[in-house]
Nucleic acid binder design. Structure first.
Lengths: 109, 109
DNA sequence: GGCACGTGTAAGTCTTAACTTACATACTTC
DNA sequence: GAAGTATGTAAGTTAAGACTTACACGTGCC
């Protein structure tokens, strides 16, 4: 994991609104407009946050058609469990310095 | 842990420069000016980042006197291991709601 | 005393992210 | 076809961080 990837997740999660979004989505899948109402924020704003969370791989969205024919964009939580400690961070920063060699270390024994 | 506390850590760690700072300090304690040179950033800027990291409890600084009499501000890594997952986040957001009766959901227990 | 090296901080600039407003599109129901 | 609800995005404003420059202060050394 490069520091850029790590940063994408950390920066995504390092914001009050997005923390609330995650908490809400963790309670069950919802569609955007409904979520915006629940959180009391504007839909475009929520949209931006969801985009960022999705890019970080924390939530996944899917456009679905209700049986009434209306298009609803549902979001649900993606399984994630990131460890933030000195080891994770130094490894990520070191991965940058390694240049092109991505140095896959799934099991740093 | 409230979301504010969680956020302090996540926001502190969610920045490229600070990631590098942590990685560098993880390699051993150093004083500010030396660290600034190594990272190639200005001392006041580093100062700000260190302040933020310290506030988040990720590093600890101590002003020491070298035997030559010069004051050096040393920083070293604080032990930390935070888990970033749905559970941590929902718990933190829920902790906020405790004590504030602003929004009681339609699920009275 | 003047230079080199260190800490600490104030004040400004600049960049980026967050947020708002507004509009286009689509389908349902009345 | 107008009203309601939904998605999607563009364009603008505002707020927040990040970053720079500059200075005050202290100590050791030539």
């Amino acid at each position: 994991m490069t520091s850029e990837e790590l940063l994408t997740v950390l920066a995504a999660v390092g914001h009050a609104q997005r923390l609330r979004v995650i908490a809400e989505v963790a309670g069950g899948r919802t569609y955007v407009s409904e979520l915006a109402r629940r959180l009391g924020i504007s839909r475009p704003l929520l949209y931006m946050h969801l985009e960022r969370l999705e890019k970080a791989g924390l939530v996944v969205g899917s456009l679905e058609l209700s049986k009434s024919g209306k298009a609803l964009k549902y979001f649900e939580l993606a399984p994630f469990d990131l460890r933030v400690n000195a080891e994770t961070i130094t490894a990520a920063v070191a991965a940058d310095a390694e240049g092109t060699d991505s140095d896959v270390k799934g099991n740093p024994t």
